[in-house]
Design a protein around this nucleic acid. Structure first.
Lengths: 213, 213
DNA sequence: CGACACTTTGAAGAGGTTCAACTGGTGTGG
DNA sequence: CCACACCAGTTGAACCTCTTCAAAGTGTCG
């Protein structure tokens, strides 16, 4: 049973926002929507992983967020998307008509609260991101990202990392070389292992957590 | 947010959220609430200016946001404040009981939408902050902050800067010395003037905007 | 006027970037 | 089935922006 203000589980959110929608597949690096386009849909990752990003005029890219199975993205206050979204690997994405969602929110208080909750969670994550970019060193940022991926993909020690080094760099406000060197140094210190480029084993989670706390 | 009905002005928001509340005064650097405290109120700046921040264990500080007259802050999804808030100068702050706000939101769709709108605007600002910290140089960050202050305080060319250099640094992810040097170099280039420490004159706004676009 | 906090400036240093070369894994074609 | 090409990732070295540490300057308030 839901409290008047809190919706406590992802599945509860999904139940409230269960609106039929198409569920197309996108392949690796395919654009789902672009910055400045009309925000006619809200999206949910069914399988795979998605990145959302913004670009400066000169090409500098900042990845805003990574989205994993179950996550919603593309929810906007205004009429236009403020970020672009691309699949990081083959992904299936549920499309929810924005009009259907606002109709639902207008009729049902719990749906309106679910939307508020999604937005507020996005804000919390963005605030964490700000703290990371403003005040943490490269090694702390990388450690934090690995732990975040572990948590959000429900991985134990061994992670499937769906993003390239460039994606990690553009999320962390670093360069690809710094990310690579930092991962190597974490490996040298025995905190992680890198069996392959897109797999990371967390060997000393406690130590990683100490870096990010 | 999702609804076709938009609330377009701050005053409209205020009308919807007009709940009687105390309006205490805080003096410079006084804490309004602390990170981890129970979030029993939502706050609105009546006059003055407020900063919200988070601290790492070792004392590194990241300012999350500056709040000016009319701005709401301290709105939380969960039970606890995730940031601390302090007055940057003498300020009067309206306190709104959170319970009163959620009652109102439960009864009136437009109030619920107003809360969503506030949250979504906070998210947009936080995303802009992420882009700034992740991918902009010191001079671009400082220029961006000055323009932001100008816009939010409705200043034309001459700005009243309510924050210290340390506050600017902790918002921009820089050090106090870098902020100071950057302001000096903007002055040397003729883009701004610094008649006194807490006053800035924007002499070439176009050039400043070019840096931040 | 003097004390104190904040700001500015200077010089040296570090962390991260840049540019460049090399490595390794993957896919393709002979 | 191997050779080769290609691309992402790694490593190295030089460089640069920003930081750190130190000192001097400025403004404010008793």
């Amino acid at each position: 049973m839901l409290s008047p203000i809190r919706i406590d589980t992802v599945s509860a959110l999904d139940a409230v926002l269960a609106i039929p929608g198409a569920c197309p597949r996108f392949c690796r690096d395919e654009e789902i929507f672009g910055e400045g386009e009309s925000a006619d849909y809200v999206y949910q990752v069914v399988s795979g992983a998605v990145r959302t990003h913004r670009l400066l005029r000169d090409g500098r890219r900042q990845i805003d967020e990574f989205h994993f199975a179950g996550d919603y993205f593309g929810l906007e206050l205004g009429e236009l998307h403020r970020v672009s979204a691309e699949a990081m690997c083959d992904a299936s994405i549920r499309l929810i008509r924005r009009g259907a969602l606002s109709d639902l929110a207008a009729r049902r208080g719990d749906a309106a609260r679910a939307i508020l909750r999604l937005t507020a969670e996005g804000l919390q994550r963005s605030q964490d991101h700000v703290l990371m970019l403003g005040r943490r060193s490269a090694i702390e940022r990388v450690a934090g990202l690995l732990l975040d991926i572990a948590e959000r993909t429900n991985a134990r020690a061994e992670l499937d990392v769906p993003m390239s080094r460039q994606d990690m760099a553009d999320y962390l406000g670093l360069t690809i070389e710094t990310v690579s060197r930092t991962l190597t140094s974490l490996q040298d210190e025995g905190l992680i292992a890198l069996p392959s480029v897109r797999h990371v084993v967390l060997k000393d989670r406690r130590a990683l957590e100490r870096m990010t706390a």
